[in-house]
Computed example of a mutant assay.
Amino acid sequence: MKTYALTVFAQTGEKLLDESFTANNDDEAKEIGKARLEDEGYSEHTHRCVTADAKLILFHR
Score class of each variant (00 low, 15 high):
Glu14Leu: 14
Ser43Asp: 10
Gly33Lys: 02
Leu17Glu: 12
Thr51Gly: 10
Leu17Cys: 09
Thr46Leu: 09
Ser20Arg: 04
Ala35Asn: 02
Leu58Gln: 11
Phe21Cys: 14
Val50Thr: 15
Ala54Pro: 03
Ser20Cys: 14
Glu40Met: 07
Tyr42Trp: 15
Gln11Gly: 10
Ala23His: 04
Thr22Val: 13
Lys34Trp: 01
Glu19Gly: 12
Glu40Ser: 10
Gln11Trp: 08
Met1Ala: 07
Glu31Leu: 05
Ala23Val: 03
Phe21Thr: 13
Leu37Asn: 02
Phe9Gly: 00
Lys2Thr: 00
Ala35Met: 03
Ile57Val: 10
Asn25Phe: 03
Ala54Arg: 12
Ser43Tyr: 01
Thr22Asn: 11
Asp18His: 14
Glu19Thr: 14
Gly33Met: 05
Ser20Val: 08
Leu58Val: 05
Tyr4Gln: 10
Ala10Glu: 11
Lys34Leu: 11
Tyr4Met: 00
Gly41Met: 06
His60Cys: 12
Ile57Gln: 02
Asn24Gln: 07
Asn25Ser: 08
Val8His: 01
Cys49Leu: 09
Asp39Asn: 02
Ala10Thr: 06
Tyr4His: 05
Asn25Arg: 06
Val50His: 11
Lys30Glu: 12
Asp18Cys: 15
Ala54Gly: 06
Ser43Ala: 04
Arg61Trp: 06
Lys15Pro: 03
Cys49Gly: 07
Met1Lys: 01
His60Thr: 06
Ile32Cys: 04
Arg36Val: 01
Phe59Met: 08
Phe9Pro: 02
Ile57Ala: 09
Thr3Ser: 09
Arg48Asp: 06
Ala23Phe: 13
Ala29Lys: 03
Glu31His: 08
Glu28Tyr: 05
Ala35Gly: 07
Lys55Ser: 09
Leu37Ala: 15
